[in-house]
């Protein structure tokens, strides 16, 4: 085999690896979107100074904390597993926070924030909603007005990971809401 042929062969292998990375991402996240369990999360306002990022809306969740599993000690920043439940109104909440993966039920891999009154506050891994750059600021304002009232996020959960499907303000999606202004 000539040197040029070897280079071409190696290049093909490298190209295949390069393509496999985004393809694998698509595969993984599309699977969660298709077969993951749907959860509805109520939103809360986020720190406005931190929120205006331009390309996306920063999301905050009302139920971003849960009781710490008995006998466990967690340190700040540690990866934790939040077991999920659904309340009487159909909204998601965290039933326990633990350092160990639960054996049954849906869970989310999250980051421990702080403990207060036996409740572990966590950072959920799905806290962004990407939008067009020129729409994101308007969306941000709409989100802030509705957060804590009728803003909710639909998230698909599978194997500890979650992917945001849609952001709703009242009955309308955020895109419909902005276009109706």
């Amino acid at each position: 085999m000539t040197k040029n042929k070897i280079v071409l062969l190696l290049f093909t292998i490298v190209a295949a690896i390069q393509l496999s990375v985004p393809l694998n991402m698509v595969w993984q996240w599309e699977d969660i979107r298709q077969t993951g369990q749907q959860y509805q999360w109520l939103t809360t306002p986020v720190d406005p100074y931190d929120a205006l990022r331009g390309r996306y809306v920063d999301l905050g969740f009302k139920a971003a904390q849960g009781p710490l599993a008995s006998g466990e000690k967690l340190s700040n920043g540690q990866t934790v597993y939040a077991t999920l439940g659904v309340d009487a109104n159909g909204y998601a909440y965290i039933s326990t926070v633990s350092a160990n993966k639960p054996e049954t039920g849906d869970y989310v891999k999250a980051r421990a924030l702080y403990l207060s009154g036996g409740m572990m506050h966590v950072v959920l891994p799905f806290n962004r909603y990407y939008m067009r750059e020129d729409l994101a600021p308007a969306a941000e304002i709409a989100y802030r007005k509705s957060a804590g009232k009728d803003g909710r996020v639909i998230v698909r959960i599978k194997n500890g990971m979650g992917v945001v499907e849609q952001l709703y303000i009242g009955e309308k999606t955020i895109e419909e809401r902005i276009n109706s202004y």
């Binding site: 390069q18 985004p22 891994p125 990407y130």
Partner: peptide, 16 residues
């Protein structure tokens, strides 16, 4: 293109 395609896929799924 490598960087852009990974970033665009991430954005499509609202990944942090």
């Amino acid at each position: 293109a490598v960087g852009t395609s990974i970033a665009l896929v991430g954005q499509t799924y609202h990944l942090v």
